[in-house]
Write a protein that binds this DNA or RNA. Structure first.
Length: 262
DNA sequence: ATGGTCGTGATACGA
């Protein structure tokens, strides 16, 4: 089963790219972030025509997450618990049935957190604390879980072409990286790092020729619970998508799990 | 060192 995460930076601007990529890559489950659309305007018909079920958690203008799945959704839950005042659309969880039992897949869009030293950074760290609490809770179920999305965290120096320029950025603060590391300490596996030590990026800024210089960062991650990691066959980044016409600034990251639909 | 680019939706704002 192929599961992907992709920050598409506006679903309406990216619908042609998205449909092309779905046909090319044939993922079974896709986690999208930054759909920048309300649920009513999400282009679900074209996606459903390719055989996907569609669940969205959008809002006007910015943020917004979605899950597309060839498997039927058994359950859908929106919003990360722990702060009822948080009205950002950044979290959606789908539950599916596989030959090996339940599979949980989350599409998350973690706050950017810039600039450091403002309430935006505090919000990011608070969100990460809530995510850790959620992860602890779900791990107790001992189920395959794929925690996928735009984490807005550069885990290690190797995950940036020029780590030095990120030292004052929220994506590379010790607090951000430490909070990300907590997921690993809980038992989640960074799928890319389970298969390779090479420098790989998932985001290249639109500005200053970042793509042409391969000045990228790896901030989109698929974190696997132990029960998912034991089924991991492959993990990769679909870098070629960044060279398409009218690209998102992020590309899809993908895992292949040895699980079949029920 | 500075300014550089996008998407949304109609204007600044977020990234």
């Amino acid at each position: 089963m192929k599961i992907a995460t992709w920050n598409i930076n506006g679903v309406k601007a990216r619908i042609d790219n998205l449909l092309t990529w779905l046909k090319d890559s044939q993922p079974d489950i896709v986690c999208l972030q930054e759909i920048k659309s309300v649920d009513e305007n999400f282009p679900r018909l074209e996606i459903e025509a390719l055989g996907y079920h569609v669940e969205t958690h959008g809002q006007k203008g910015f943020n917004g997450v979605a899950i597309l799945s060839k498997l039927r959704f058994d359950e859908v839950t929106c919003r990360l618990p722990g702060n009822d005042g948080d009205d950002h659309a950044r979290f959606i969880e789908g539950v599916f049935s596989t030959s090996a039992g339940v599979l949980r897949v989350v599409s998350l869009y973690l706050p950017n957190g810039n600039p450091v030293g403002t309430e935006k950074f505090t919000y990011k760290l608070g969100w990460m604390e809530r995510l850790e609490a959620w992860a602890k809770d779900r791990l107790a179920l001992e189920e395959p879980i794929v925690l996928a999305g735009d984490y807005n965290v550069i885990p290690q120096p190797i995950d940036a072409k020029n780590p030095d320029v990120w030292v004052n950025d929220a994506l590379y603060q010790p607090e951000s990286r430490s909070a990300f590391r907590q997921l690993s300490l809980l038992g989640f596996t960074d799928s890319i790092r389970a298969v390779t030590d090479e420098a790989l990026y998932t985001f290249w800024d639109y500005q200053a020729g970042a793509w042409q210089k391969n000045n990228g960062i790896r901030i989109d991650h698929l974190m696997l619970s132990p029960e998912a990691a034991r089924h991991l066959d492959a993990a990769s980044v679909e870098k070629h998508v960044r060279a398409w016409e009218k690209p998102s600034d992020h590309v899809p990251a993908v895992v292949e799990l040895a699980l079949d639909a029920a």
